[in-house]
């Protein structure tokens, strides 16, 4: 997934240059966004969760969900062997069924990008977490070096974390500039760039108002994707947090013409959950986002549940974990 860095910002985005011209104007803008009522947002998310998806719709949703998975391992104990296994799983999630699609990407720490890349080649993307993941607590120089290193190793996608401390302290322009700088660090020598996902760690931002502000801030800074969580903080992805982010990308495209992707990550373990997310994507952001280019699941155990359900759909009987690979 390589695109050329546009020389000028999208015309719709240009109108917002004043917004990011100063700390004060950015703050005014972000605090001028409509508030989010927690109870109402959660009720809406729960309401969408009651949609009942059956038969053909479910079969379609399962394959789409598999294609949207960023198969992830982000442990201190990750080894080349572990990530190679994961890379193979990403290519052929269900070895027994060649009709089963590959996942979208494998997501690992930067130092393991090469191991994965060697196996998946260009069939599945390699995503690397960067910028002192998961805490984001390092100097800017270190964060950018971290990013450049992953890109140099061949990462197709960079999942950066924002400095939540800066955000919560109200230093929005600092966060904005970090994203802009990281985005620049994603540029390869040939001018193409690794896709940037910005992780908010919504469990630390706590309020939906903050999630909406962070979303707009990151989108104005030129990110390709906005992502909920590192998976290291609870709560990670939730339906209502994702709802607020989907509303943000929907509104952002309406305002600027620029489409941004969304990635909930962490805590999505079952097919039932995944389908709820897809229903939400469909009804909040719309059809255009029902594509791995625009929506991802950051997950590990989810994949096997999707595979079990997929087998149930094709065979008509319930499957069991022994029939799916543990990697």
């Amino acid at each position: 997934m390589s695109t050329t860095v546009p020389t000028d910002p999208a015309p719709g985005l240009a109108a917002y240059s004043e917004v990011t011209a100063s700390e004060a104007s950015l703050r005014r803008f972000l605090h001028g966004l409509p508030g989010v009522d927690q109870v109402g947002a959660e009720a809406r998310a729960a309401g969408l969760g009651t949609r009942s998806i059956k038969t053909t719709a479910k079969a379609w949703a399962l394959d789409l969900a598999i294609r949207m998975v960023d198969l992830t391992t982000l442990e201190g104990q990750d080894t080349p062997g572990k990530v190679r296994a994961l890379a193979n799983k990403a290519l052929r999630p269900d070895p027994a069924d060649p009709s089963c699609p590959s996942v979208a990407a494998v997501c690992v720490y930067g130092d393991l990008v090469g191991e994965v890349k060697a196996i998946v080649g260009s069939q599945v993307n390699v995503a690397a977490v960067a910028t002192a993941f998961p805490s984001g607590r390092a100097s800017m120089a270190v964060k950018l070096a971290d990013t450049r290193d992953a890109v140099a190793q061949g990462a197709d996608e960079i999942d950066m974390v924002i400095d939540r401390g800066a955000f919560l302290a109200g230093h929005y322009l600092q966060v904005f500039e970090e994203i802009v700088a990281t985005r620049e660090a994603c540029v390869r020598p040939d001018g193409s760039h690794a896709h940037l996902k910005v992780i908010f760690e919504t469990g630390e931002l706590q309020t939906y108002d903050n999630v909406r502000r962070a979303s707009w801030l990151a989108m104005l800074a030129g990110t390709d994707f906005i992502k909920t969580s590192t998976g290291k903080v609870q709560p990670a992805a939730t339906l209502p947090v994702t709802l607020v982010m989907l509303e943000a990308v929907r509104d952002f495209r309406e305002a600027t013409g620029v489409q941004i992707g969304v990635k909930p990550a962490g805590g999505i373990r079952t097919t039932k959950d995944a389908i709820k997310y897809l229903v939400m994507v469909n009804e909040i952001a719309g059809d255009d986002w029902l594509d791995p280019d625009w929506f991802r699941f950051g997950a590990s155990t989810l994949l096997n549940d999707l595979l079990m359900q997929r087998t149930k759909m094709t065979t008509g009987r319930y499957s069991g974990p022994d029939y799916f690979t543990l990697d």
Binding site: R51, S52, I53, K54, T55, T56, A57, K58, W60, A61, L278, V279, N282, D287, L290
Partner: peptide, 9 residues
Amino acid sequence: MGFEYAPAP
């Protein structure tokens, strides 16, 4: 293809 919910009676 869009997400056409099948009937769920």
